[in-house]
Simulated assay, not measured.
Amino acid sequence: MYLGKVIGTVVSTSKDESLIGTKLLIVARLSETLAPDGSTEIAVDWVGAGNGEVVIVSCGSGARQTNGHEDTVIDASIVGIVDTVEVHGQRGAA
């Protein structure tokens, strides 16, 4: 899993059947200090995340186990919206 920030959406009318009805978001990977690391990924949103929100992203087989989608092509899922992050006594709002 990693922290990410939602920076956009993806609309795809032609896609694998297992993705029909899913919301696809572009997520920028963040460090533990919430600084962008330069990489992005498309993730399926299961929690109603919006643009600009800091989220928790699960990858690989863990991403497919969300909401019973074990037989899909999903490789990244947004599984949480972050309220705060605390690192070694430092606290930051997401």
Rank of each mutant, 00 (worst) to 15 (best):
T33E: 15
A49M: 10
A43M: 07
D83A: 04
A76K: 07
T13L: 11
D37M: 06
R64K: 09
H88G: 10
V82Y: 02
S18D: 10
V47Y: 06
V82W: 01
V6N: 03
G50Y: 00
V11S: 02
I81E: 01
H69V: 02
V79A: 03
V55Y: 00
V82R: 09
L24R: 09
V6T: 10
Y2P: 03
D45A: 11
V79I: 14
A94R: 01
R64Y: 01
K5I: 15
A93P: 03
D71C: 06
Q90C: 12
T33R: 13
S31Q: 04
L34H: 04
V54H: 04
S77M: 04
L25D: 09
G92I: 15
T13I: 12
A93C: 07
S61F: 09
L25I: 14
T72A: 02
Y2N: 03
D16M: 08
V57P: 00
V11R: 01
L30Q: 12
N67L: 03
V47Q: 06
S14L: 07
D16T: 13
Q65M: 14
L3G: 05
R29I: 12
V27W: 08
I7H: 00
S18T: 13
D75H: 07
V85E: 04
V27I: 14
G38I: 12
I74P: 06
E41C: 12
V11W: 05
T33Q: 15
G52I: 12
A76V: 11
T22N: 00
E70W: 00
G92A: 15
G52F: 07
H88C: 14
C59Y: 10
L34E: 10
K15P: 05
G48P: 01
I26W: 06
V85R: 03
S77R: 00
S31D: 14
S61N: 05
S14G: 11
S39R: 11
V10T: 08
E32I: 09
R29P: 02
E41N: 13
A93E: 14
G68F: 11
I42V: 15
R64Q: 03
V82T: 14
I20E: 14
I56G: 11
S61W: 04
E17G: 13
I20A: 13
L19N: 01
V44P: 06
T40V: 15
G21F: 01
Q65D: 02
V54Q: 00
L19Y: 01
G8V: 08
G50D: 13
I81N: 02
E41F: 14
V87G: 09
V79K: 01
L19T: 03
Q90V: 14
A49H: 00
R64N: 10
E86W: 03
D45E: 11
T66F: 05
